[in-house]
Design a protein around this nucleic acid. Structure first.
Length: 427
RNA sequence: GGAGAGUUGGCAGAGCGGUAAUGCAUCGGACUCGAAAUCCGACGAACCGGUUUUUCCGGCGGGCAGGUUCGACUCCUGUACUCUCCUCCA
């Protein structure tokens, strides 16, 4: 949620910034119009309410003195009716204003490449050289199915498209990857959390998924309840402190969690229909930080670098890009994506997204701390995948594949696989 | 799933239709070499509007949402959460 006072005071700045995210200037004007009308109505309503309170006190006093209070009671009746009318208008205006404001994305930070498409992302660095294959590298789904460690036929039967069964060494590899990630995050000072996998709509609103998420049918809501399956652990992790004041000495708070993420993938029909890249349910280890405002930009770099360190240890080639203004998620002021090299596709694919949402989520979710003057301020929140687990498995299968169809296991994962060095049919 | 109780300021805790006692904590002051104790005073969330870049005024506010009423923390309805008992259950 953007700061309305800020919009009121710097309308042109907001218009320029949000134009890069596809928001029309007229939308901002409309919002400011609602705000002006709202404040006008508040002024009128509050004047009447002040009168009402005075009249009420008069009645109370008259009653105490056993005097006649008919005049004051009539005044109360009249004023009460006027207030009712005015407040109905006010409520409508507030709702209109709020609905509009809730649809405005965060202001892009300086340095975010401006573009109305995903074209124009800036590559910050490229690490590791794609391996030179002496044979045609296979897609991970082919490798996985041949090895008997991924079964998409069974999942199609039992659940539907965009699900998977990991079998045997495949399931173990998935487990090795997320245990490795959790251990690394633990070492980096993140508190491990095991949160609920369903959250209420206030939480979905707090982290900025709702209302758009609902309108786009992007998720899985539980019938006859207020619950939604989490689309990312970011939701329960950030909302942990919703409506709270975080004790200042605790900042920065760093959380990490392994959870499944549930997404409808509405609107992505035909894309990535095979394999582990785009599923309705996938595991992800997530990192979240709550920081003081002045620390959040350093924190974004630190989260990104930590996510990178995982890929470095796994020895998988990747690059880091800064997303464009319109490619970023709704809540982000800046996002660095990590993309891993997928040999069979011959391109980099997203495996992590690290964002600074500044105070955008904190405003929605009311997450505050007290500054050195004891004043309540909004914290900044950050999130980053560390990392997507299924996509890591896909990347391992493709980057570590051998011509005979076996797959080597990255050295750092071998201890997590009871020393197994290679996945072959026999496993 | 059933029954009951509860939800008031940072905490504790009254009132139970006329606009939120009191205690603790906090802040300021007095006393003191200093501190404790004591005394005096202030302050009761967050939020919103006006004015104002300190101030002051007003609104809102007693889990939340409605209703009754000139007026509700106080009555009624719904709902969320917490606790206890029963039931069920990994």
């Amino acid at each position: 949620m953007l700061d309305m006072k800020m919009i009121r005071q710097n309308p042109d700045f907001i218009k320029d910034k949000l134009a890069t995210r596809g928001i029309k200037a007229e939308t901002i004007d409309e919002l400011i119009g609602y705000d002006e009308k709202r404040r006008e109505l508040i002024l009128k309503s509050e004047t009447l309410k002040a009168n009402k309170n005075k009249a009420s006190k008069k009645i109370a006093e008259a009653k105490r003195n056993k005097e006649d209070a008919t005049d004051a009671i009539n005044e109360m009746k009249q004023v009460g009716a006027d207030i009712k009318q005015l407040d109905a208008d006010l409520e409508k205006t507030e709702k209109d204003q709020h609905d509009l404001a809730a649809h405005l994305p965060n202001i892009p930070a300086d340095g975010v490449p401006e573009s109305l498409t995903e074209e124009g992302a800036v590559e910050l660095r490229k690490i590791g050289k794609p391996r030179n294959f002496k044979f045609e590298p296979k897609h991970h789904w082919d490798i996985g199915e041949k090895l008997g460690i991924l079964n998409f036929d069974a999942s199609a039967k039992v659940a539907g498209s965009r699900f998977v069964y990991y079998m045997g060494a495949g399931a173990k590899l998935e487990r090795a990857v997320y245990n490795f990630y959790l251990d690394q995050n633990d070492k980096a000072g993140y508190t491990e959390v095991l949160p609920p996998y369903m959250v209420n709509s206030a939480s979905m609103y707090g982290t900025g998924q709702f209302p758009k998420f609902l309108e786009n049918k992007a998720g899985f809501e539980i019938a006859d309840s207020d619950l939604t399956m989490i689309p990312t652990a970011e939701v329960p992790l950030v909302n942990y402190y919703r409506d709270d004041v975080i004790p200042t000495e605790k900042l920065p708070v760093k959380f990490t969690a392994l959870t499944p993420a549930f997404r409808s993938e509405a609107g992505s029909a035909g894309r990535d229909t095979r394999g582990l890249i785009r599923l309705h349910q996938f595991n992800k280890v997530e990192m979240v930080q709550f920081t003081k405002p002045e620390d959040s930009w350093d924190a974004l770099e630190s989260i990104t670098e930590h996510a990178e360190s995982l890929l470095k240890l796994l020895k998988i080639p990747y690059h880091v890009i800064t997303l464009t203004t319109s490619d970023m998620s709704f809540t982000a002021a800046m996002t660095h994506d990590l993309e891993v090299w997928m040999p069979a596709q011959g391109r980099y694919r997203e495996i992590s997204s690290c964002s600074n949402t500044t105070d955008f989520q904190a405003r929605r979710a009311h997450i505050q701390y007290r500054d050195e003057n004891g004043k309540l301020q909004y914290v900044h929140t950050l999130n980053g995948s560390g990392l997507a687990v299924g996509r890591t498995v896909a990347a391992i299968l493709e980057n570590y594949q051998n011509e005979d169809g076996t797959v080597d296991i990255p050295e750092v994962l071998q201890p997590y696989m009871h020393g197994m060095k290679k996945i072959s049919k026999e496993n």
